[in-house]
Design a protein around this nucleic acid. Structure first.
Lengths: 350, 350
DNA sequence: CGAAAAATGATTGACGTCTATCATTTTTGC
DNA sequence: GCAAAAATGATAGACGTCAATCATTTTTCG
């Protein structure tokens, strides 16, 4: 009644242990009929290789590389913390994580780094994708060379990468839109969207998602043209101040990108009733905003879950397993003032 | 530069492998000074036992028992599915899960089952707690006998159980309250709370949480006395129909317990504008309600995360590790129509 | 000081798999 | 039918730990 070993498989197939092993590990040099007999014995017994014993024997450690944006955005800092936290936890599982930090959101240094990589350097690579032909090319090269690539947070080279782990930004935008609609039940309003840049696909998707839901609203929700603030607090500071001065009747703000430190500062000095504010990602910047009720909701992509999921997938990939196509889909979380996770636990708890 | 083995520890401590092993596994019969030398060698080298090799050698399998409520509530059915899904996934980690289903929410059968249990039967026990002196006594007995007990969803015997895995129901209630407040921004309203029973601690906590947040609201939110429906659809059907007939101006409904099938049926026949509706737990009953926009928000305790977290803790406990006091805290999730997880993925994705 | 007790060392065979080698058997092709 | 090639069997030593045995050394104490 206990788990069958490869020895049991060999016995049932009527071959030697060596032959069963040759089949299992595809070493070749086995007659077709023997292959079939071993295969069906595996099937019949429901044999599954004891991966732990196998790893012990092979002295295998999983070597994973994470290419992360350097932490000028507070979200990227949180993300890095998540990776480091998981790195410590997974050492027991023979997983070794190397982290290299690159300038955030810049294609050139990332492409450079990828060019220098050889497929045999790591068992799997995770990176925050940027959609650029040069980067796609490198991902294809590495994947073809046998190093699976997982995109994290942002996708790239959708055909060549093994998995994308992250949220559906259109879903995130719709969710934000829904919250804003909720907060406008039975009244009219004017919404101010703020994005980093039109060129960022994730911001565009969030914007479109939010617009779709807000446009559904029967009642009149007036959606202002989006402010473009380049994810930078200084720009945010000016742009938002100006926009609010021009539109004192703004009842809702949806900030899709970074640089929210300035936004929160402005909100703190706004007279009541303040507009309803939704923004993205729980960080040391946004969390106090929620706690002080300056902002009302945060759409979070749950970086801890993303990193943990990514690592599960990377291990499966390194073991040569098949992966379901949408295994990396992360459902965005909604945080209000009241359901904030315990401080710090964002890093550990998937 | 690679991980030190026990052999390295022995060498550094200047003792034999056997002695190092005696210290590591507390087999006794070792002189004090040797113990110290080994200990400090472990410290100095940062040695950590290779748990996988150890388990292989011991032929250890973790034997865990789950005592689950029989699935008449749809949530408990989801919970059971989560346990079964994890059971399949964790076989590779040498975890064997036995599930016993008991009549839901009845103390007597649970106490009976516990009485029959001997501490040596399983390495760890997880159960949905009911707060009863008899059950507390049994948990204390098992814990004292060396079988750690983890409470799931509902707590019990807080002093004796090793961990509670579940949400803070007061937080869940506050979150629901906050959503209702959001939906009443700038307008008055009348809220209808629905609970299963006053005796259920979780329902009371949810109610108190929601009331606390709703009472904060400057504007007038009129909170009706809670309907008590015993978690049963038939009772719900009558009670809610009557309450809505009596109060046609209800603008919000918060259902804290089960039996929501009837509530959703009623909502489907209500003329617009429908009240704002929040209820608990994403199940095959509530999900379509969200999708059809009959209800507006679901507070979910993320059973997949709960089960997964419980298993992590149970393994740590079985390995004799220490556990941080709030390791089982689960942050409740808010689901709107737009951020529903992919169907089925609730069971797998923590 | 010497005997008993305590501590330590040395060693062995598992656990399930990997990797390698070498001998033996079976199949293939001429 | 025979040599060469292909397939198979048998076996051994690792991986890091556990659990056990037995011999040897050191300590304790009367």
């Amino acid at each position: 009644m206990k788990k069958p070993t490869l020895r049991d498989v060999a016995r049932m197939a009527g071959v030697s242990y060596a032959t069963a092993d040759r089949v299992l590990n595809a070493r070749g040099g086995v007659a077709e009929k023997s292959v079939l007999r071993v295969r069906s014995a595996i099937e019949a017994l429901g044999y599954e290789r004891d991966q732990q014993a196998a790893n012990l024997s092979r002295r295998r450690t999983y070597e994973f590389l994470f290419l992360l944006p350097r932490g000028d955005h507070s979200f990227f800092r949180v993300l890095g913390d998540c990776v480091r936290a998981q790195s410590a936890l997974r050492q027991a599982d023979r997983i070794r994580i190397t982290i290299r930090e690159l300038p955030a959101l810049e294609p050139a240094p990332l492409a450079d780094e990828l060019t220098r990589l050889r497929p045999e350097d790591f068992d799997c690579l995770a990176l925050v994708g940027i959609e650029t032909p040069g980067i796609a090319l490198q991902i294809e090269r590495l994947a073809a060379g046998g190093m699976p690539v997982v995109t994290l947070i942002g996708d790239a080279a959708a055909a060549a990468r093994a998995a994308y782990v992250g949220i559906d930004n259109s879903v995130a935008g719709r969710t934000a839109g829904r919250l804003i609609r909720l907060a406008h039940t039975g009244r009219r309003g004017r919404i101010l969207p703020i994005i980093g840049a039109y060129t960022a696909r994730d911001h565009r998707e969030r914007l479109d998602g939010a617009r779709a839901v807000l446009a559904e609203a029967h009642a009149g929700l007036d959606i202002l043209p989006p402010l473009v603030v380049q994810d930078r607090p200084e720009v945010m500071e000016h742009a938002v101040s100006a926009a609010l001065a021009e539109n004192p009747d703004v009842t809702g703000i949806y900030s899709m990108g970074a640089g929210n430190r300035a936004l929160i500062r402005i909100l703190a000095h706004l007279p009541a009733p303040r507009p309803f504010v939704v923004l993205h990602d729980l960080t040391p910047v946004t969390r106090p905003g929620l706690e002080r009720a300056l902002i009302d909701a945060v759409i979070d992509q749950r970086p801890a879950t993303e990193v943990s999921t990514a690592l599960d997938l990377m291990r499966a990939l390194a073991d040569g397993k098949q992966i379901p196509p949408d295994a990396g889909q992360i459902t965005p979380a909604i945080y209000l003032k009241d359901n904030l996770p315990h401080p710090g636990s964002e890093k550990e708890n998937p």
